[in-house]
Design a protein around this nucleic acid. Structure first.
Length: 279
DNA sequence: ATGCCTATTATTAATAGA
């Protein structure tokens, strides 16, 4: 099964692009960010027509997140992160889809940094990490997918030195991301492609896409059970080249449909056999 | 160091994004 995350940058303005991409790649589950629409302006009918059930948490002008599922209905289990009842931004929604828990998130941008927006980003990240830990402890299979607004390492930026002071790359944010992953999550794209330059975002400015001046800021973090089922991961980069497109590209993982026991057992045997053969 | 580009909201300019 395929799970994708896509910062659409306006779900109504990008609707033709979104529908074309859904038709083309048929992901089973989709996490959307930056709907930029209030709840009553979510294009439910068009999404339904495309074959998806959806839940969403909208907001006027900015933010907004949604989860789409092709088979079955996403059952909403949470909207908003715990820890701050005064936080009015629509940046987190969580669903149960079959046996899987899917958290769809949109981390604050945080610029300019330092400043109150950066403080909000760090505080939000702290709440995300606390909730992520709770999810891990639950022992359920979990995917936390979305726009994290952080490039984890220098390898994830076209020109790291330009971004040192930026809220997406400041050391505090990189460390917060590293600590989150260290809880026991797998950064799926990096796990599948350890040596490959991969970007998920290209600025509208400066002809960034044509120059491949990109950032890797959209991530799918997998709990241990889900990580064992990971058989593929990638970015639908060509979508970034379409007309009236988002500045982000859809980012996805492919999971084995059932727990990975038989395949893993086979692999382990093969490795042991290879070792013995060497001796 | 800054603008560049693109969207939304509200009316021609401001704000946010990354």
């Amino acid at each position: 099964m395929r799970i994708a995350t896509y910062n659409v940058n306006g779900v109504n303005g990008r609707l033709p692009v979104l529908l074309r991409w859904l038709e083309l790649t048929s992901p089973d589950i989709v996490c959307l960010q930056e709907l930029k629409a209030p709840d009553d302006r979510f294009p439910e009918a068009a999404i339904k027509e495309a074959g998806y059930n959806a839940i969403w948490h909208g907001q006027k002008s900015w933010n907004g997140v949604a989860i789409l599922a092709r088979s079955g209905t996403p059952i909403e289990v949470r909207r908003g992160l715990p820890g701050d009842p005064d936080d009015v931004h629509s940046r987190y929604i969580e669903a149960e889809i079959d046996d899987l828990i899917v958290g769809c998130l949109y981390v604050p941008n945080g610029n300019p940094a330092p400043g109150p927006k950066f403080d909000y980003k760090l505080a939000w990240f702290k709440r995300l990490a606390a909730h992520a830990k709770t999810l891990l402890k639950s022992g359920k299979p979990v995917v936390l997918a979305g726009d994290y607004n952080v490039m984890p390492t220098e390898f994830d930026v076209y020109k790291p030195e330009r971004w040192i002071e930026d809220a997406l790359f400041r050391i505090e944010v990189r460390e917060a991301y590293a600590r989150l992953v260290h809880q026991g999550w797998t950064d799926a794209i990096r796990a599948r492609h350890p040596d490959k330059r991969i970007y998920t975002f290209w600025d509208y400015f400066r002809n960034a896409y044509a120059r491949n001046a990109g950032l890797r800021i959209d991530h799918l973090l997998l709990s241990p059970d889900v990580a064992k089922r990971l058989i593929g991961a990638g970015v639908d980069g060509e979508v970034r080249g379409w007309e009236k497109t988002s500045d982000h590209a859809p980012t996805w993982i492919e999971l084995m449909n059932s727990p990975a026991k038989p395949a893993r057992a086979k692999k382990a045997v093969t490795r042991t056999a290879a070792k013995k053969a060497k001796k």
